[in-house]
Simulated scan of single mutants.
Amino acid sequence: MTSPISAFPAPRTVAAVTGPTVAIDIGGTKIAGALVHPDGTMTAVTRRPTPRAADAETVMAAVGEVVADLSGAPMWEQAVRCGIGSAGPVDTSRGTVSPVNIGAWRGFPVQDRVAAALRARGARIPVVLAGDGVAMTAAEHWLGAARGHANALCMVVSTGVGGGLILNNQLHTGPTGNAGHIGHISVAFDGEPCACGGRGCVESLASGTAIARWARDQGWTGPDPTAAGVAASAQAGDPVALAAFDRAGRALAAAIAATATLVETDIAVIGGGVAASGDTLFEPVRRHLASYATLSFVRDLRVVPAALGTHAGLIGAAAAAMLLLPGGGAATA
């Protein structure tokens, strides 16, 4: 009888991959691009602000500008694959995205459109689409804080909240690429409506947008109306700002514990802009986690900051392409 572990296919690695990868990271705030090399180094890094209030073609035009910037890089002609990491939900089976924080894109065929933009710049290479949480997970397991862990949850806490899973040393994407999308787990059954249509989602409580909105609603009047501004006030002892981060930390802790209980992860890695607040976020997450992760097999669950910082999305988009394309993605005609 086959054992449960040996029933999984052998984990894929990026160790034997050659050639640079065109990496594109699409989020609610920025669209970034780079050439990522097999050792994880990056060149030709570029970015554009995401035109969130614009129509679908205007958003795509910003992606096209990023591709145009990259095409001027000295190693452009050596690129052999492209990885796209996008805010979700995504549908990797169709190559489409419907980011909650980019309202103009609903079922947008970003994989085909990026492939066309690449061809227009002379790059006829295979293209892989991954959710931003999955991309960040691939990056942190390859080179970051989840390296060496066979089972891990990785999260992006920024304008939205996304995530991804490593199970038995493999990137677990699910049929449509949304496995591990922890931002839309409900942790408050009578909570406020979420932009996704659900109620009480982690994202509606713990994203940077949600933290800042809740603080303002409670009377906080700091000069910087963003989550970073709330974090600065919390570090100065402002009670409303501290309460906003405590609320976010509790939501994250509940979702992390639920995920770990379901699939037995032993580490949770948190990255994204909100994670840059350091212990202002991590202290309440860890404190509340002790109340949620109580069973013996999740009690020792660790919560740590992501190691790759703001470049995790780009490195992850490349890592996902290396892992998910047959043979690491040889160039196509």
Score class of each variant (00 low, 15 high):
V134H: 02
V134P: 01
A135C: 12
A135D: 03
T137C: 13
T137S: 12
E140N: 12
H141P: 08
W142S: 12
W142I: 12
W142C: 08
L143W: 07
G144N: 07
G144M: 07
A145T: 14
A146I: 14
R147I: 11
R147W: 05
R147T: 15
H149Y: 14
A150Y: 03
A150P: 04
A150Q: 14
N151H: 15
A152D: 10
A152T: 10
A152F: 07
A152M: 13
L153G: 03
L153Q: 05
C154G: 11
S158D: 10
S158K: 02
T159Y: 00
G160D: 07
G160H: 06
G162E: 08
G162Q: 06
G164W: 06
G164K: 05
G164C: 10
I166K: 00
L167D: 01
Q170H: 09
Q170I: 08
H172F: 15
H172K: 03
T173L: 11
P175W: 11
P175N: 10
P175T: 12
T176K: 08
T176V: 11
G177S: 11
G177Q: 07
N178H: 06
A179V: 11
G180L: 09
G180I: 09
H181L: 09
I182R: 01
H184D: 02
I185A: 01
S186V: 10
D190Y: 01
D190H: 05
D190Q: 12
D190K: 02
P193I: 12
A195R: 05
C196I: 10
G197P: 04
G197Q: 06
G198P: 01
R199H: 12
